[in-house]
Design a protein around this nucleic acid. Structure first.
Lengths: 124, 124
DNA sequence: CTGGATCCTCGGCGATACTG
DNA sequence: CAGTATCGCCGAGGATCCAG
């Protein structure tokens, strides 16, 4: 019996499916944003600057549904809604941040490889 | 000066951009598959079972371009091409596997949250 | 066996306008 | 301020046919 091998075909499907939950254009970014501090709808919107309100709504709904964020409505006037990470969401931040850190740290290497690849294609 | 905070808006863009490189439908899965062992085109295709040959080609090209995999042609007859992870690719496997492991380990919690959310919507 | 070229569909996503 | 509804674009990605 394999122990936590994770490369078994079955797990592979599991991973890709799980990744697709969080691998859309905005989920990760929103989670990272909320990881810093809970924020209101507009705050997140401004912080991300580039996300449409439709996608922000959809993304937050999805994250809420999956148990990564909570949505708290304060019946003030005008109403305000605060989004925050759940325990689950905070836990997820750890591996996500690790991956993000690695990617950011290695952007150079990727771009170097890319330039090499492209120039080889031209002259090659 | 911030120390590796990673949630600064600038890094956030960096992350999302970097993630989009690897966050498409197949890149991660292919990388994980090659992490187990170098494989030929058809082997990867069969192992993944569900990817079209067009997407496999495109994915491998992308990964090769970004310096994550190598492509070695053996001029046999019929020709065979072997794909393998570069050092960069192998390094990336570490954080990716960490995330994948976490995701797989927490699928239950996500699905539970999801069911709760959905039933609340109905009755609420 | 490897993989390029084409066609076509579907869905993500943005823009805009409107409601409470 | 927070959220919904609608429309339209565009690109990811699958199916298929063809070539070295």
């Amino acid at each position: 019996m394999e122990q936590g091998h994770l490369s078994e075909t079955n797990d592979l499907r599991c991973i890709s499916e799980a990744l697709s939950r969080v691998g859309d254009k905005w989920s990760i970014v929103v989670v990272m944003e909320l990881a810093a501090a809970p924020k209101r709808f507009s705050e997140v919107r401004r912080a991300l600057d580039g996300i449409s309100q439709k996608m922000l709504t959809a993304t937050l709904r999805g994250l809420e549904r999956d148990g990564f964020v909570t949505r708290t409505v304060y019946p003030t006037k005008p109403p305000s809604v605060e989004y925050a990470l759940t325990a689950l969401g905070q836990e997820m931040v750890v591996p996500v941040r690790a991956l993000g850190t690695w990617l950011v740290a290695n952007v150079e290497r990727v771009e170097t490889a890319r330039r090499l690849f492209d120039s080889d294609r031209q002259s090659g």
